[in-house]
Amino acid sequence: MKLIKFLIQAYRNQRRLKPKYYQLISWVGGIGCFISIVLWYSQLGLIAEVMNIDMDMPLRKMSGYTQISILSVMLFSFVLAMYIGCLALTILVFLIPVSLKYLTLEEYFNITLLCSYPERWYKGT
């Protein structure tokens, strides 16, 4: 339940940003997702090898347990790849403003880990 509340609050925080910051966050997220998908897709062969899956056999001819295992591992690895990719890109991108003293370390950690932005980034401030 806390995760759902956190995600809703993160979404609300992002929607309240000034247009230039909203655009920045959107670009970072979009590029992070693209990189994550490419990396995840490139690792599917390794995942299949680790699970000892015969890639020449159609999925429908495998047992139900094997099908569920494959799909579960693929879904979990996809979610993990998306999280790691977006987090890594966010960490790298926002190191630049920190090094230029535009952001404090506290603001940096709030942005990268908590999806909470500095007050000056919100509309109406």
Score class of each variant (00 low, 15 high):
Met1Gly: 13
Lys2Cys: 03
Ile4Ala: 10
Ile4Cys: 05
Phe6Met: 09
Ile8Glu: 04
Ala10Lys: 04
Arg12Asp: 11
Asn13Phe: 13
Gln14Trp: 10
Arg15Cys: 14
Arg16Asp: 14
Arg16Gly: 13
Lys20Ile: 07
Gln23Ser: 10
Gln23Arg: 14
Gln23Pro: 00
Leu24Pro: 13
Leu24Val: 03
Ser26Asp: 03
Ser26Gly: 02
Trp27Thr: 05
Val28Lys: 03
Val28Asn: 13
Val28Gly: 03
Gly29Val: 11
Gly30Ala: 01
Gly32Trp: 01
Gly32Ser: 06
Gly32Met: 08
Cys33Gly: 00
Cys33Gln: 02
Phe34Asp: 01
Phe34Val: 08
Phe34Leu: 14
Ile35Lys: 02
Val38His: 08
Trp40Arg: 04
Tyr41Ser: 12
Tyr41Trp: 14
Ser42Asp: 07
Ser42His: 05
Gln43His: 03
Leu44Val: 15
Leu44Ile: 13
Leu44Gly: 01
Gly45Lys: 06
Leu46Pro: 01
Leu46Lys: 06
Ile47His: 06
Val50Pro: 05
Ile53Gly: 06
Asp54Thr: 07
Asp54Val: 07
Met55His: 07
Asp56Gln: 13
Met57Val: 15
Pro58His: 14
Pro58Asn: 04
Pro58Trp: 00
Leu59Gln: 02
Arg60Glu: 02
Lys61Phe: 15
Ser63Gly: 12
Thr66Gln: 14
Gln67Ala: 00
Ile68Met: 10
Ser69Trp: 03
Ile70Phe: 09
Leu71Arg: 04
Val73Leu: 04
Leu75Tyr: 04
Leu75Arg: 04
Phe76Ile: 07
Phe76Ser: 09
Phe76Asn: 02
Ser77Ala: 13
Ser77Phe: 15
Ala81Gln: 09
Ala81Tyr: 08
Ile84Val: 12
Cys86Pro: 10
Leu87Ala: 03
Ala88Gly: 03
Leu89Tyr: 09
Leu89Ile: 07
Ile91Phe: 00
Leu92Ala: 13
Leu92Met: 11
Phe94Met: 06
Leu95Pro: 00
Ile96Ala: 03
Pro97Ile: 10
Pro97Tyr: 00
Ser99Ile: 09
Lys101Ala: 00
Lys101His: 11
Tyr102Arg: 03
Tyr102His: 01
Leu103Trp: 10
Leu103Asn: 12
Leu103Lys: 01
Leu103Pro: 01
Leu105Pro: 07
Leu105Met: 14
Leu105Phe: 15
Leu105Tyr: 10
Leu105Ala: 08
Glu107Leu: 00
Tyr108Pro: 10
Phe109Leu: 10
Asn110Lys: 09
Asn110Ser: 14
Thr112Lys: 07
Thr112Arg: 06
Thr112Pro: 11
Leu114Lys: 12
Leu114Asp: 01
Cys115Tyr: 07
Cys115Glu: 00
Ser116Ala: 09
Ser116Gln: 11
Ser116Arg: 12
Pro118Gly: 12
Pro118Ala: 08
Pro118Thr: 00
Glu119Leu: 15
Glu119Val: 07
Glu119Ser: 11
Glu119Arg: 15
Arg120Ile: 02
Arg120Phe: 05
Arg120Val: 02
Trp121Ile: 05
Trp121Asn: 06
Tyr122Leu: 07
Lys123Val: 14
Thr125Glu: 12
Thr125Leu: 04
